[in-house]
Amino acid sequence: MRAVIAEDSVLLRIGLVKVLETAGFEVVAEVDDAEALLAAVAEHRPDIAVVDVRMPPGFTDEGVRAALVIRRQWPGVAVLLLSQYVEERYAADLLSANTDGVGYLLKQRVADVEEFIDALRRVADGGTALDPQVVSQLLVRRHSDPLDRLTRREREVLELMAGGRSNAGIAGQLVVSESAVAKHINSILAKLDLPKADADHRRVLAVLRFLGVA
């Protein structure tokens, strides 16, 4: 798999290259601003772009805007955003179009190399990876809505679903059986009044509702 890295901090860029190479990615370009990122993506058409949110020249949300352009112009390129802090609106912007091949993680998660590699592969394969902090911050916004009806366990399951985990992944994380996870998910879908359609679609709808973007 081929990857492009856009990160203006040299130290972190070197670390990212090493991590990606360890994970078996081929880093075809390393850039340090949004314009160069778009040029590199246009040239190399990588499988994934790992993008810092805050980059020159403005040091605000250049990375997010570049990511949205990439999503629109090259839908086949997965994007993993790295940020110093969590801004839910970025996550909502990114996810509102399409949840496939999108990730939003705090920079410090790179240090948890195994988990970070997991998230990288998931996103590159068209999955989703959201930082737990993004998820809990989105929860703060919820007032009285169907999510309040969920039990604590169901909420945990939904958070992990939103983070992009499979049933098996959720079961591993919570140390319960896969069938228990399936039961929780059914209960969640019922409580969120989601229409009985194909399970994957309902699953995505639940996550979107949870994130407040649907």
Partner: peptide, 22 residues
């Protein structure tokens, strides 16, 4: 702090994590 110490710490943690993983 962000441009200095924090970046170095993250880089160090990444290297240690890599060492652990590989």
């Amino acid at each position: 702090l962000h441009d200095g110490a924090q970046q170095r710490l993250v880089s160090m943690a990444v290297n240690l994590g890599l060492a652990r993983a590989t």
